[in-house]
Computed example of a mutant assay.
Amino acid sequence: AGIAATESSAQSGPFAPLAGSWSGSGTVTLDDGSTERIRCRAKYAPIGPTMEMSLTCASDAYKFNLGANVKAEGGAIAGSWSETSRNISGSLQGRGSGGSYELVASTAGFNANISLKTSGNKQNVTMRADSQFRGAHISMSK
């Protein structure tokens, strides 16, 4: 019964559809307009209304390591993020539940819009930014 209760708490809450490890591929667009194929891995660890996540993506010439800690209250989501390979961090805000989220990651001189949509064992992540990194489209599965 103790194991079932633990799994139940991880599987309820606004981030439950994301729980676990995901992998897939997509493209990243750079400021010169060029695109590169990327391979990605994500891990989501929700506990009730909070979640820790990590997303690592790499191409032949480009890599990013994104981590975040977020909390949901009602439909609002707030938290912090960091990108370790560039040593930057900032705030994360947005809305969402049930596997569909619209977020904005910000720090001084950088803003990125992040759309994350999950249905069953499929997930699509779209990022658009105003920096050297212009955006990414990633499709992953569990």
Rank of each mutant, 00 (worst) to 15 (best):
P49Y: 02
E73S: 09
S85K: 10
I3W: 10
G48M: 09
F133P: 03
V70G: 05
S115P: 00
T56H: 12
Y44W: 12
A76H: 14
I38M: 12
Q93H: 12
S21I: 00
K71V: 13
F64E: 13
T50M: 06
F133L: 12
S9T: 11
I3P: 00
E7M: 07
N69G: 01
T27N: 07
Q11M: 12
R134Q: 14
E36P: 02
G109R: 11
E52M: 05
A19P: 00
Q11A: 08
K43R: 11
A4W: 13
A129N: 10
A72L: 00
T50V: 05
L92F: 09
S82I: 09
S8I: 03
M51D: 01
G2E: 15
G94A: 05
E83G: 09
A4K: 13
F133H: 00
I88A: 04
M53C: 04
S131V: 07
A68P: 00
A76K: 15
C40S: 14
A61N: 13
A72T: 05
A108H: 09
S119Q: 14
E73W: 03
G79S: 07
K63S: 13
G96M: 08
G98A: 14
A5R: 12
A16E: 08
F110S: 06
A58N: 07
G120P: 03
G109N: 13
Q132E: 11
G26S: 04
S141Q: 01
G99R: 03
F64Y: 15
V70S: 07
S34T: 15
P14N: 02
V70P: 02
G120E: 09
A78E: 08
E52H: 10
I47P: 01
L30N: 07
P17G: 06
S119R: 04
A16N: 06
A108P: 05
D31N: 15
G135C: 06
Q132V: 11
G96H: 06
A5M: 10
A61S: 15
Q11L: 08
F15K: 07
A76W: 01
T126E: 13
S106G: 13
K63A: 15
N113Y: 02
S85Y: 14
R128S: 02
L30S: 06
N121M: 02
N121C: 05
G135T: 12
S12P: 05
D60W: 03
D31W: 09
S119N: 11
S115A: 11
T35M: 08
S12Q: 12
K142R: 15
K43D: 09
A112V: 08
G13E: 04
S139D: 01
W81P: 01
Q132W: 05
S131P: 07
L30P: 00
N113G: 14
P17C: 07
V70W: 00
E52A: 12
I138R: 00
G96N: 10
F110K: 08
I3L: 06
S23C: 03
D60S: 15
R37E: 08
Y44D: 04
S8R: 12
T84I: 08
K122L: 02
P46N: 12
K63R: 15
E7Q: 10
M127V: 15
A129I: 02
R95P: 00
